[in-house]
Nucleic acid binder design. Structure first.
Length: 329
DNA sequence: AAACTGCTCAACCGCGTAAGC
DNA sequence: GGCTTACGCGGTTGAGCAGTT
């Protein structure tokens, strides 16, 4: 797809500025991705307009920035949104609304775009099914009193299953992924480090969850609820992720600092960082409004047997619960 | 097998704001 | 203070895919 950049002058005549000649739009090609990755590896990011020109990309700086931040960054995390992430998104959206980038700060590796898409496609869909506005009190209460407690239950269950079922593995273990072309990628280098960093910075890291829910094992990639959930981090690799991974494994963009963070700039310490323990237990915590997860009756199935949280939630039973909830208000 | 429908998500757009001159 | 440029954010679009009829 290639479009010529065109603008109209004061008389309405279509003119073509030098900068807009051959300006490309639409999906990025592998070559473009490589050019961008290569350029940023050598020169760093920022100054996106000049970067686009210098890298020989016929793209706007804006487009380059978006492609890098949302897709090509080595630490961008792909795959399904995990249960912990779902819970966090629901809670943080309740707190901040559509402040996607702010919410994304608490989900390392996730982009604001991804969270926004998640909210629009999954959460808003259920509001639509319930015939109420996503910002209505009814729907917010349904999320708070039905959806979120069930998510916590699922997270606990996943943690318990992982504790019982899998031997503790070394955090430095290699994760090997083989794609359809039988190309193998070992996640024991930078990305594995970045994964550990993710777990360390993650507000709802499995370690935290275990601590809060009675688990005692230390966190490892294998026993993480990330792995136990339907999420496929580490098992679902997009072509471009492979490209980036391959590039970073073989062409080498090595971060040598000792904190294992490949690029600390991506995850600045959030000033008012939340404590999940506080969220659950503190009277001033996020979930403090008469919400007691531990005493919630797990009477209604939260998920279907296929593990699909969303499709299984708004079943008849929960719809009735929702009805009762709204009737009592 | 073809047509249709719904969903997902990458990419674009417009706007507000910060920074630099 | 005003202008320009760059950046970042949130809203929206549309291509591609999967599922259904």
């Amino acid at each position: 797809m290639e479009v010529k950049g065109r603008v109209s002058n004061s008389t309405g005549t279509i003119v073509q500025s030098e900068d807009e000649i051959d300006l490309r739009r639409g999906p990025w090609t592998v070559d473009e991705d490589l050019a961008l990755i290569n350029y940023i590896a050598n020169h760093g990011e920022g100054r996106w307009n000049s970067l686009a020109r210098s890298a020989g990309l016929k793209r706007t700086g804006k487009s380059c920035r978006l492609r890098w931040l949302n897709y090509l960054r080595p630490d961008v995390r792909r795959g399904n949104i995990t249960l912990e992430e779902q819970l966090l998104i629901l809670e943080l959206h309740g707190r901040w609304g559509n402040r996607w980038s702010k919410i994304a700060q608490y989900l390392p590796g996730r982009t604001d775009n991804e969270i926004k898409n998640y909210w629009r496609t999954r959460v808003q869909k259920h509001a639509k099914q319930l015939k109420c506005d996503v910002n209505s009190k009814q729907f917010k209460d349904a999320m708070r009193y039905l959806w979120m407690p069930r998510l916590v239950e699922r997270i606990q269950a996943a943690a318990a299953t992982a504790t019982a079922g899998s031997p503790t593995a070394s955090a430095s273990a290699t994760t090997t992924i083989t794609n359809n072309n039988n190309t193998t990628y070992n996640y024991n280098n930078n990305l594995n480090n970045s994964f550990e960093v993710h777990s360390g910075n993650m507000m709802l890291s499995p370690a935290i969850m275990n601590n809060n829910f009675g688990g005692s094992q230390s966190y490892t990639p294998e026993n993480s609820s990330t792995g136990a959930s339907s999420d496929s981090f580490g098992t679902q690799v997009s072509p471009v992720s492979e490209l980036t991974q391959d590039y970073y494994n073989n062409v080498t963009v090595v971060n040598s600092n000792n904190n294992n963070n490949p690029n600390p700039d991506y995850y600045p310490q959030v000033q008012d960082q939340l404590s999940f323990l506080d969220c659950i237990t503190s009277p001033s915590g996020l979930f403090s409004q008469q919400l007691d997860f531990q005493s919630m009756e797990p009477n209604t199935p939260w998920i279907q047997s296929n593990g699909d949280t969303y499709n299984g939630f708004w079943n008849v039973e929960n719809m009735l619960l929702f009805q009762q909830l709204t009737d009592n208000m």
